Simulated assay, not measured.
Amino acid sequence: MARLTFLDWPVIRQLRGADPTGRGTAVTSATTRDIVPRTVTADGVADSICPYCAVGCGQRVFHKDGRVIQIEGNPDSPVSRGRLCPKGAASQQLANSYLRQTKVRYRRPYATQWEDLELDVAMDMIADRFIEARRAHWEDEDEQGRPLKRAMGIASLGGATIDNEENYLIKKFFTAAGAIQIENQARI
Rank of each mutant, 00 (worst) to 15 (best):
M125T: 06
M125P: 09
M125G: 06
I126K: 06
I126S: 10
I126W: 06
I126A: 10
I126L: 06
A127Q: 06
D128Q: 09
D128L: 12
D128I: 14
D128P: 11
R129P: 08
R129F: 11
R129G: 12
F130Q: 08
F130C: 09
I131M: 13
I131V: 15
I131S: 09
I131W: 13
E132F: 10
E132P: 10
E132K: 10
A133T: 05
A133C: 05
A133W: 01
A133M: 04
R134L: 03
R134A: 03
R135E: 05
R135Q: 11
R135K: 11
A136S: 15
A136T: 14
A136M: 12
A136G: 08
A136E: 13
H137W: 09
H137Q: 06
H137V: 05
W138K: 03
W138C: 01
W138V: 02
E139D: 10
E139F: 02
E139L: 08
E139V: 05
D140Y: 02
E141F: 01
E141S: 04
E141L: 02
E141G: 00
D142P: 03
D142S: 02
D142V: 00
E143A: 10
E143V: 01
E143N: 12
E143D: 13
E143F: 12
E143M: 08
Q144V: 05
Q144F: 09
G145F: 04
G145W: 00
G145H: 01
G145L: 00
L148D: 00
L148Q: 01
K149I: 08
K149N: 08
R150K: 05
R150F: 00
R150S: 00
A151G: 05
A151H: 03
M152V: 15
M152T: 14
G153H: 01
G153T: 02
G153N: 01
G153S: 01
I154H: 07
I154C: 04
I154N: 04
I154E: 10
A155F: 02
A155N: 05
S156Q: 11
S156P: 09
S156G: 14
L157S: 06
L157A: 06
L157H: 05
L157F: 09
G158Y: 01
G158H: 02
G158M: 02
G158I: 01
G158N: 06
G159F: 02
G159L: 02
A160P: 12
T161A: 11
I162S: 14
I162P: 14
I162K: 15
D163E: 07
D163M: 08
N164F: 03
N164H: 09
E165M: 13
E165C: 12
E165V: 15
E166P: 11
E166Q: 15
N167M: 13
N167K: 04
Y168L: 02
Y168F: 03
L169D: 09
I170S: 04
I170T: 08
K171R: 09
K171V: 15
K171Y: 12
K171H: 11
K171S: 14
K171W: 12
K171C: 15
K171L: 15
K172F: 01
F173V: 12
F174C: 10
F174W: 07
F174Q: 11
F174G: 07
T175N: 07
T175P: 04
T175Y: 04
T175F: 05
